[in-house]
C-alpha cells in the first residue's frame, strides 16, 4: 500500500510544450490563473476559469490528473457548500463560492502537475531564498520515496510477527501503530544523521552564497508563451473586474 502511495507521489515528467516551459513562466501562469479563480464572481466567469485552466492542462496531457485532484478536494468543497448554506447564504451564492474554491485548487494544481520538484528548487534558488530553506525543501521531497520504502519494510516485518494492524477497537488500532512508528522515526533519525555527515563532507556552508551549475534561461517557447498568456489574461481580468 505504501508502495502505491510512493508511486503516486513521484512527479511524472511528460514531454509536452507546457512541461518544457521555464518554471518561472509556469509559476507566472499559475499565479495568473489563481488570480482569475479568486476574482471570479459568477457562474459564467467560473466557467471561463475552468476553460482557462483546462487549456494548459490539456496541452500538458494532465487533464485526468487534474480531475483526480479536484475529485479529492470534492469532500472539502461539499463542506464549504454546507457551511455556506447553514449560514443562510442563498443556494446560488453558495454554489459560486464552492466552485470558486474548486477553481483555485485546479489553478494551483497546474503548477505542481507540470513542474518537477527539481524545477521548483531552481525557482526557489532564483528567488534567492535562504540556502538552508531551499535545501530542506529539496531533501524532504527527495526522501519521501525512501521513507515510504522504509515504511513498507517495517510494516512487512511487523506483520510477519503477527501484528494485525486493522484489528480491534479504535484504541487498539492506534496502539497497533507504535511498532511501526517507532522504527520509522528511528530510521529517519539515523538517515538524517548520515545526511548531515555527508553534507558536511561535501563542504556545505563553505561560502555564504553558493553558486549554481544551472542557470534558468528563457527560450523562444517561453517568450511565445508569454506573448499569448499576458494579453489573454489582461483581457479576462479586465472583464472579471467589471471594467470591460
Amino acid at each position: 500500500m505504501a508502495h502505491v502511495m510512493a508511486e503516486g507521489f513521484k512527479f511524472r515528467y511528460l514531454k509536452t510544450p507546457v512541461h518544457g516551459l521555464d518554471p518561472r513562466v509556469k509559476l507566472l501562469m499559475t499565479a495568473m490563473l489563481f488570480a482569475l479563480a479568486l476574482l471570479s464572481s459568477n457562474l459564467y466567469q467560473e466557467a471561463l476559469v475552468f476553460a482557462a485552466v483546462g487549456v494548459p492542462a490539456a496541452l500538458a496531457r494532465s487533464l485526468k490528473r487534474l480531475l483526480r485532484i479536484a475529485a479529492l478536494s470534492l469532500t472539502f468543497s461539499l463542506m464549504i457548500f454546507a457551511v455556506n448554506m447553514l449560514f443562510g447564504q442563498p443556494l446560488l451564492e453558495s454554489a459560486v463560492i464552492t466552485i470558486r474554491f474548486l477553481g483555485i485548487v485546479a489553478a494551483t494544481s497546474v503548477f505542481f502537475v507540470t513542474t518537477s520538484p527539481d524545477e521548483i528548487e531552481y525557482v526557489m534558488r532564483w528567488f534567492r531564498l535562504p540556502r538552508d530553506f531551499v535545501f530542506a525543501f529539496a531533501t524532504s521531497i527527495r526522501f519521501v520515496p525512501v521513507l515510504m520504502m522504509d515504511l513498507t519494510q517495517i510494516i512487512d516485518a511487523q506483520r510477519s510477527r503477527g501484528l494485525e494492524m486493522d484489528r480491534g477497537n479504535p484504541v487498539r488500532r492506534i496502539r497497533n501503530l507504535i511498532p511501526v512508528l517507532i522504527p520509522l522515526i528511528v530510521n529517519a533519525l539515523v538517515r538524517s544523521g548520515e545526511l548531515a555527515e555527508a553534507m558536511e563532507a561535501r563542504g556545505y556552508g563553505a561560502v555564504s552564497r553558493p553558486t549554481s551549475m544551472h542557470a534558468l534561461l528563457m527560450k523562444k517557447n517561453d517568450y511565445a508563451a508569454l506573448l499569448v498568456l499576458v494579453p489573454a489574461w489582461s483581457l479576462l481580468i479586465t472583464y472579471f473586474l467589471g471594467l470591460l
Binding site: 527539481d118 521531497i141 527527495r142 548520515e194 545526511l195
Partner: peptide
C-alpha cells in the same frame, strides 16, 4: 559512506 542513499541529496 556505507549507504549511498543517504548521501545523494538532489533530484538528478
Amino acid at each position: 559512506f556505507q549507504n549511498p542513499e543517504n548521501q545523494i541529496f538532489m533530484f538528478t
